[in-house]
Design a protein around this nucleic acid. Sequence first.
DNA 1: GTGGTCTAGACCACC
DNA 2: GTGGTCTAGACCACA
Lengths: 122, 122, 122, 122
Amino acid sequence: MFIIDIQNKVPIFEQLKKQILEFISIGILLPNDKLPSVRSLATDIGVNPNTVSKAYQELENQGYIYSVKGKGCFIADNQTDQLIKDDKLDDFKGCVNEMKKHQITKDKLLEIIEEVYKEETV
Amino acid sequence: MFIIDIQNKVPIFEQLKKQILEFISIGILLPNDKLPSVRSLATDIGVNPNTVSKAYQELENQGYIYSVKGKGCFIADNQTDQLIKDDKLDDFKGCVNEMKKHQITKDKLLEIIEEVYKEETV
Amino acid sequence: MFIIDIQNKVPIFEQLKKQILEFISIGILLPNDKLPSVRSLATDIGVNPNTVSKAYQELENQGYIYSVKGKGCFIADNQTDQLIKDDKLDDFKGCVNEMKKHQITKDKLLEIIEEVYKEETV
Amino acid sequence: MFIIDIQNKVPIFEQLKKQILEFISIGILLPNDKLPSVRSLATDIGVNPNTVSKAYQELENQGYIYSVKGKGCFIADNQTDQLIKDDKLDDFKGCVNEMKKHQITKDKLLEIIEEVYKEETV
DNA sequence: GTGGTCTAGACCACC
DNA sequence: GTGGTCTAGACCACA
């Protein structure tokens, strides 16, 4: 289910977080769905349990999931997917600002958006 | 001329690289222009010369500048500004792909672009 | 395993890079093999860890190895040995061109090649 | 007459030396020919006179040229061109050894030599 | 434990 | 003066 790339510079726990958020955003993980246990997920993707634990803890601190002692971790229910999308849009805005700083024209950006959204989803 | 934020988590030498690339991209630094010397820039922005040196060396390895022992560092002359913009556009494309993955609509993105490009440049 | 000559004018980190590339080329170091840790190698060959680190980082930037924080450095897996050999052959071509410029005859070169390849490997 | 590339990593005085040796090797500069004066050559190619002087001094130390006070520098006459070619062949031998170390086959090298020597001289 | 960044201060080659 | 290399020793993030 989860794919992590050890060669990638972004830390493993961040990759995990990102994928979980993506699944929530898309609707694969719904509010109150149970996440895999730290230990099982760790062995599944071949990483240290501490790493999975760190990802879960950060997600919990940010309110995207909640943990129940002795039961596991679950997706939070308060418009989580919308919060995630807002975060992502903030990222996008930052990116656009970068482009503007480099004096890249609006048209170039629109062109790229058209191109990306025309492609079939893989 | 250069502003670095020592508190920021992004490494100082990366901040430096980014600003130099920005200046090239905008046209403030033109091909064959001389960059400040390692030592002078280091004292200017209050960091160790090694840190500036690392930034310069990485820029050189990436072909954006060239260094001449005993003379200084200079902006490379091969359409450097265009190469930088292309790199940036690649970043943007990656970002748009991210948005698409999160099932964010094209309209949202267009909206944000309009918003950013309407603002006065600071 | 690695031998560096501190007297030599070629920088230590370059000597290191060269030997690592040689080992990859020969097949002593295979894709995804782990390189010695920065610190252990540094003490082994009696240099500063920063020096080893610089060698590793340059090899990474050039795509020959990849590093994972908290785990170590590993040989890259994309036909790295072939890429290195191609680089070397480019060097050779440049060298032959030099000889031609100096109006050295082809026969002289062939003679030397025979001589070198006849010798026992040390 | 002389072409120096400031962007090149090899020091200017080395580039100069190399070109003078090349001209001797080819026969453009003959024994007892006069080399341009340090100052005139320096202004011609736009470098510091010290740099030209250093090149000349090293060539003199190595016996390729001789200087006469108040008159200038001249090409030495004792089989200079042959000495240069021998030096170059030593370089070539070193290069071939490098190739052998990387387990590159003799055939590959022969192939490249054929290729280079088939080309028209530019 | 690992690699990555940074400082302080030294020495060298080149111009 | 310039950039390039190296050491010693520190601190951080990641696993």
